[in-house]
């Protein structure tokens, strides 16, 4: 019997932490773009986002197994899912966009990218919060 609850708990923290860290790196690098470490931060943010997207696949698979295929649910589980699916979609989309565009971003493209990174971070943070609430209230029903 695979302990999906423990696996899901272990796997979700990587995409959450990496996405938040990647967003922070992007904002610092684009705010202080003249500083010598700005380019290095953009590189860190790029790899952070890519690994977050890959790690999120494991988190989602373990989550599906944990909820036995229930991708909505009610109560805290429902709220967790309401935030997690937009976050997952945005994370994958942003990672693909960044892989295609790399550093060749226009001003508009960069602005949109940063806004969507912030939105995705908000969604994933909220999903993590409700995931914690599920645990505190006795686990997945």
């Amino acid at each position: 019997m695979i302990p999906w609850d423990k696996l899901h708990g272990a796997m979700t923290h990587f995409p959450i932490a990496l996405l938040l860290f990647s967003t922070a790196c992007d904002f610092v690098s684009f705010t202080f773009k003249k500083l010598p470490f700005a380019r290095g931060l953009r590189l860190v943010s790029f790899y952070g986002l890519t690994v977050a997207a890959l790690a999120s696949l494991g988190a989602v698979v373990s989550g599906i197994a944990l909820t036995k295929g229930d991708l909505w649910g009610r109560g805290d589980l429902g709220w967790h899912h309401r935030f997690v699916w937009p976050a997952f979609g945005l994370l994958m989309g942003l990672a693909v966009w960044r892989l295609v565009v790399r550093d060749a971003m226009s001003r508009t493209g960069l602005s949109l990218y940063l806004i969507l990174m912030l939105v995705a971070s908000g969604f994933i943070a909220a999903a993590g919060y409700f995931g914690g609430e599920i645990l505190l209230n006795g686990g997945v029903p």
């Binding site: 989602v60 599906i64 991708l71 699916w85 997952f88 979609g89 945005l90 994958m92 989309g93 942003l94 693909v96 966009w97 960044r98 892989l99 295609v100 565009v101 060749a104 971003m105 226009s106 508009t108 493209g109 949109l112």
Partner: peptide, 23 residues
Amino acid sequence: MTPLEIKGAMAAVITSAFILIAT
């Protein structure tokens, strides 16, 4: 937005939609 960014956006939308539908 540049043509490369638009191409990237299309790839992003298609990938996201595909992965969410598969999920």
